[in-house]
Design a protein around this nucleic acid. Structure first.
Lengths: 355, 355
DNA sequence: CTCCATATACTCATATTGAGTAAATAGAAA
DNA sequence: TTTCTATTTACTCAATATGAGTATATGGAG
């Protein structure tokens, strides 16, 4: 972990730093605009075919086209709020009208544009998580849905511990540890690299935490194992040869935003009724469970799931049943939005099992 | 000076929005900077005298000076990351070196600058929550600590339900409901105003949720009851006469950022060991409890608190005791940072009681 | 020396959780 | 028609966690 003084030193290239700061502050008070672009990025998630899906658009970068999240700059003249701007861009680029949307994080680190030098304007990107129910009939005017786990193959544990972890990831992380161990390089994490590997991938007795999607992605990034690290000229990326693809790559830092989105969704699904943003009006409890499992990437105990969701007042029976389920007809349920008024934090509070 | 966007808007006052959007996007691709300022704001919280304290600086606005959070613009030339910029501004303005800091939210709504028209540049402000232990000996070069509940008198329930709720707030909210009921005015909330009053202030059987600090502030804002609403020319603010002060006001939207910070801290304290950022290295369990209670604004069951914190592996005894506690000497404890490696979400999971 | 406020050590009933068994039912396969 | 199968639905049960309480220890103030 870097000290305050180191951080301050880094923040002051060259001469009289205090003076420069004052000057910058003064410029701001005189309302001189700084050359900063604000990008709005939407991680739009739906659930189809038992898999969480992300809406991507194609973006030409350098030579080859890459997957990107729908995005555009925030222009205050056109958009009353940040979220309005986001909705407008998404509708523009994909024809999709967003339902639920929440702000995730604002990314402002240097290096977003894959330049070693400081040329070009600096961009700050605000990431959003949006949830839409899957509508087969509504044709998109742009972009297409892709399975989220194509970007994070190590995150889906529904068929057991993904092979890529022990076969590809952990051996390389071990080499990376052996190289430059100690605390991480200037990052804010107070943990040693070895501890971070333990926490992220649940080795040595530590258990897998499905919410640490971002932490895992960032660890792989630091270790130079994801393509984005090589693109940005990360030092650690130089030590690898014949790297397999650790998930599909994305434009700029969009995969980081997607990792943030999935992690947030996995966390939130447990204490707020956000799953229902992904469901049709009527659904069976089994369909609901499959959706939750797809998001969490793990299996849940069926009987307990039903108990939780029913006694928690999250759903109510519609009185109808669905046949052709492959077995006994299933009662149809709908979301009871009244819970939001009754309980402080209603949600699908679930604990993952390994079965 | 006029901005790029203003000039464009002036040149084409009635043009179609789709075209404008394309054009704006094109402008962005040509890397034309938009005139947007990014402000960094720090809600720095500590705990002293059994009260959460917020670090404020004085800021001259229009005629009278107001309390403000330490803030400054993000200048990519000077600051490698957003957080580095924040730390630098805070050190500059107050002499304080931040410890724990996390990003809260990015506020970008029009109206931040209390202008009815669209003059002036639009500002986007990124709010941070920072936690510091209180250090009596470290003198501040600027700013001073103020009790958080001076800004939100309705949030401290340690001496029972605050009188201001039933005496001042609820009667006026009732009048506000009677005026223009129905769903809120264009806001994103799917609830009726009446439902929001219930959820926020725990009327009609609904229980008080201490985490809804922001929701409560925004409800009071919409109802025109806080000074900021009058300053920004909110319509609802016009209907009141002889309004008492509903908490101290702050510069711009800083009180909203503070509300976000307190709400986030109250939520996070339950599932992450953030309290310890506010404690000295050694502390008694009673001191720890008093700190948690100060943050949550409610009392906890003492014996259960100890059990939770000890069996949860959050603390370990140092072997020393503290005397002069007013009673039997208390064992001193320290934070066991190893829990972070052992458990996925260690924290002070507590449930409020009314005693 | 007594009182007092706090610390510490327990008990106990109830609710929640994790995990399991068993019966019901419609469609598909034999 | 019968059997099989995958699924739904209904219970059970032990272990643990939670909310609330009682009882005792101990140093300092008066």
């Amino acid at each position: 972990m870097s000290t305050v003084n180191e951080r301050r030193a880094a923040a002051r290239p060259g001469s009289g730093s205090a003076h420069m700061l004052d000057e910058a502050h003064e410029a701001s008070r005189r309302r001189e605009p700084s050359a900063i672009e604000i990008g709005l990025n939407a991680a739009i998630i739906t659930c189809a075919k038992n898999t969480p899906q992300i809406l991507t658009v194609r973006q030409a970068a350098d030579d080859r086209p890459l997957d990107a999240l729908p995005f555009g700059p925030f222009t205050p003249i056109l958009h009353r709020t940040l979220e309005a701007g986001l909705r407008s861009w998404v509708a523009d680029q994909t024809g999709l009208h967003l339902g639920y949307a929440e702000q995730l994080y604002t990314f402002g680190d240097r290096g977003r544009h894959a330049r070693a030098d400081d040329s070009g304007p600096h961009a700050v990107s605000i990431g959003y998580l949006a949830l839409n129910r899957f509508d087969e009939s509504a044709a998109l005017t742009g972009g297409h849905w892709q399975g989220v786990y194509a970007f994070f193959p190590w995150e889906d544990w529904r068929d057991g511990r993904p092979a890529i972890i022990d076969a590809e990831i952990l051996p390389r992380l071990s080499r990376w540890l052996a190289f430059g161990n100690g605390s991480s390089d200037g990052g804010p994490s107070p943990f040693s690299r070895a501890d971070r590997v333990r926490m992220c991938f649940g080795t040595e007795g530590t258990q897998w935490d499905e919410e640490k999607v971002l932490e895992r992605y960032e660890l792989l990034f630091e270790a130079g194992l994801v393509d984005e690290a090589a693109r940005e000229g990360r030092e650690a990326a130089l030590m690898w040869q014949d790297l397999p693809a650790f998930g599909r790559t994305m434009h700029l830092d969009h995969r980081r935003i997607l990792a943030t989105a999935l992690g947030r969704l996995r966390a939130k699904i447990k204490y707020r009724p956000v799953v229902f943003e992904l469901m049709d009006d009527d659904f069976t409890l089994f369909e609901l469970q499959k959706t939750v499992e797809a998001i969490l990437g793990s299996h849940l105990h069926k009987q307990n799931f039903r108990r939780l969701v029913e006694t928690g007042g999250l759903v109510e029976a519609t009185g109808n049943v669905r046949t052709h389920t492959g077995g006994r007809p299933a009662k149809l349920f709908r979301f009871r939005s009244e819970v939001l008024l009754e309980r402080p934090a209603p949600g699908v509070r679930v604990h993952a099992t390994l079965n």
